[in-house]
Amino acid sequence: MNKDSNMQQWVDGALESIDGLPRAQANPFLFTRIQERLRQRNSPWEKVASFVARPAFAVAIVVAFLSVNLYVANRQKEERLAREKQTNEQMFAAEYNTGSSLQNELLPNR
C-alpha cells in the first residue's frame, strides 16, 4: 500500500517536473546560420547537386545506361550474325565453285 502510494507520488512528481518550465533559448547565431543556409540553397551549384541527389535521377541514369548497353549488345549480335551469314555463303560458293557461274548469271552479255 505504502509502496504503491510512493510510486504514485514519483509518477506525479515526474509529470509535474516540467510545469512552468522556461523556454529553451535558441543559439544567438541562428539568424546568421539561416542566412547562410538560404544563400546555399539559392546557389546554382547547390540546385544542381540537389537535382543530382534525387533518387529519380539515379534511377534514370541506371535505366539509360542499361538501355545503351542493350542497344550496343543487340547491334553487335546483328553484325556478328550478318558476318557469319556472309562467311557461310562465301564458303558455300567456294566449296561448290558456284562463284564463277553466279558471276556469269549476273553478267549474261559477257
Partner: peptide, 14 residues
C-alpha cells in the same frame, strides 16, 4: 535545459 537541477532525474524519466 530549463529544468532545475533537483528535478533533472525525474524530468529525464518523463
Amino acid at each position: 535545459p530549463g529544468v532545475v537541477s533537483e528535478k533533472k532525474q525525474v524530468a529525464a524519466a518523463l
